[in-house]
Design a protein around this nucleic acid. Structure first.
Length: 316
DNA sequence: ACAATTTGACCTAG
DNA sequence: CTAGGTCAAATTGT
């Protein structure tokens, strides 16, 4: 009777480790898919770092037992609230919605580059809901994989636009793609940072977030956030008017950011910390201008893409 | 006509 | 009770 009172914690640890390993695997997949492509070395380095991080954390958890601060990573079930999370069987990775990995992607849109190639990831999303978030000026869009019914892909994503920065979009991905499209891409994760389980109670979430945004991304000492997506919208003064409209289209495009080749996207890697239900203040994510504003050689041109009234080809 | 989207209602957790 | 998340019927676009 020395140490056996932590059965619950052990369960948590198992879960955490499982998630971490899954994330690491995803990262590895990304890295693998990028090896063949002409991706920036920084990106690969970043991925490698993330992989190592996942492993490191997993090992740390395994070697350390005594963190009572671990809260369930999925505070708010959301998805299916009916089934309780009874972790009974140590089965191998069950398709539990709660165990779904989550990662946040921040996308900054800037004029200069076109996301033509980037937006063609091959992932199809279907909007299934929209909700007004407290404190958030703009509604949050809920999307699911189009193949959810066909192939049972449970991947979902949420798109939330910043209150102030219309060019800042926070896309939260949940779950992994199990559809053929995912297989095509090879990596379910776009290009962002997966979120371990340490997203517990971050008192200063916002602070941490912003800090990470500007000065905490010291992963690549040489990477100057070259990834900046640009959109043909900054030219419009009255974004707020059409923002709602554009937002939708935007998210559609943004979702495709990263995946195959994210040579030119404005994705700001940020550690995502579940905002829990604390929207009251979290909504104030003033992602001031991150140093991501980078004008890359204009591959195509943001002209052809007219989101105002007629998206390039989508709207006739 | 089909499929995706829209919008409101409903549900559950905190 | 409130807020977030999902469902489902209605609508719209192609």
């Amino acid at each position: 009777m020395e140490k056996k009172s932590n059965s619950g914690e052990w369960e948590k640890m198992k879960k955490e480790i499982n998630e971490l390993m899954t994330e690491g695997r995803d990262y590895a997949q990304q890295l693998k898919s990028q090896l063949g492509s002409s991706s920036s070395q920084e990106s690969r380095e970043h991925l490698a770092k993330k992989i190592l991080e996942s492993y490191h954390k997993s090992l740390t958890i395994m070697n350390y037992s005594g963190e009572p601060e671990q809260v369930s990573p999925y505070s708010h079930g959301g998805g299916s609230p009916k089934s309780d999370d009874s972790d009974q069987e140590p089965r191998i990775i069950k398709s539990s919605k709660k165990s779904m990995p989550r990662w946040t992607q921040k996308v900054s849109i800037t004029s200069g580059v076109a996301i033509d190639r980037t937006l063609d990831d091959g992932f199809s999303w279907r909007k299934y809901g929209q909700k007004d978030i407290l404190g958030a000026k703009f509604p949050r869009g809920y999307y699911r994989c189009t193949y959810r019914k066909s192939q049972g892909c449970e991947a979902t994503k949420q798109v939330q636009r910043s209150n102030e920065n219309l060019m800042l979009f926070e896309i939260i991905y949940r779950g992994v793609h199990s559809c053929s499209q995912a297989a095509n891409v090879g990596s379910t994760i776009p290009v962002q940072i997966l979120e371990p389980n340490q997203s517990q109670e971050n008192e200063n979430l916002e602070t941490v977030k912003e800090s990470l945004d500007i000065g905490h991304h010291n992963y690549n000492h040489e990477a100057h956030v070259h990834e900046t997506a640009s959109y043909p919208l900054p030219s419009t003064p009255n974004l707020e008017s059409n923002d709602a409209y554009m937002l939708q289209m935007r998210d559609q495009n943004i979702e495709y950011f990263g995946s195959t080749s994210y040579s030119d996207l404005g994705t700001n890697v940020n550690y995502d910390f579940m905002a829990s239900r604390d929207v009251g203040s979290a909504s104030h994510s003033t992602s001031n201008s991150p140093s991501t504003v980078r004008l890359e050689p204009p591959y195509q041109s943001f002209d052809p893409n007219h989101p105002f009234g007629g998206f390039g080809g989508f709207y006739s």
